[in-house]
Amino acid sequence: MIRVALYGIPVLLAIYFLALAVSPWETRRKLRQGFAYFAGICGALIALIPLVFLLYHVIVQGLPGLNWEFLTHAQMPAGKAGGGYFNAIVGSLVIVGLAAVIGVPIGVLAGLYLSEVGKGWFANAIRFLSEVLTGLPSIIAGILGYTLIVMRFGFSALAGSFALSALMIPIIARVTEEAVRIVPQQLREASYGLGAGKFRTTWSVVLPAARSAIVTGVILAIARVGGETAPLIFTALGNNGVVWSPMKSMSALPLAVYTDAGQPYDVNIKMAVTGALLLVLWISIMNVVFRWLAAKFQPRLA
């Protein structure tokens, strides 16, 4: 089957180009049209088939393990059956929550600076650096967390949060900037006309109008960093116990999935897939439910 494809695809392509070369103009146009449709449909299938298989695998293999014990018990040592991901769930909440505490205000402020306050070369420089930070490989954020925090205080959840917040800030800054920018200028002018200053205008007029878009951006950023593993491997490190203190090493859902996925024992692989399912569920909920909530409470603009 695969061999047929390996030989067949070049042969078909050759036939296609041969046909293009020998056919009259009108047929050639139709052939091209047909090929474009074919390529488009193939492209869609190439993207969707792995998605379907991946989700199928995660749901079918992961669902049987998703029970009360999984949600309320901590991890067992490798190779031992039983236990759950409670430690990882707690860890994810603490680490991502702290990252949001650092990242959201900074990101929103930076976004407001770019759209409402900053002008000229400095604002452009910030915008440029924000783009640089958007493309930052997550593993480098991990190195940052390591050199800044781990080297001085040891492995800790806080170091992981710090690394994740470096990934969050540029996303939130950009979303905020764009959201605020599309708020109609008349609204601001009306506010200024009533005697409000820039702060009052932004706080009471611009931000409420842009709230839904900003909240959506924040949710997206949280969902994105919630699935990050690379920045946590050598910052939060992982821990089989349930830890609440951000100054200690701590597990997180993606970290637990990573370590369990590397174990030679079937029980661990099953746990990893269930953890992956939980991660997918979490991200879907963030994406669908919160976006819907944000849209529902969005004040209507004229």
Partner: peptide, 15 residues
């Protein structure tokens, strides 16, 4: 943080 962070040092996991 940066300057002192770059001195060699290596704490055990968990602090």
């Amino acid at each position: 943080c940066g300057s002192s962070g770059s001195t060699p040092g290596d704490n055990g996991p968990g602090g």
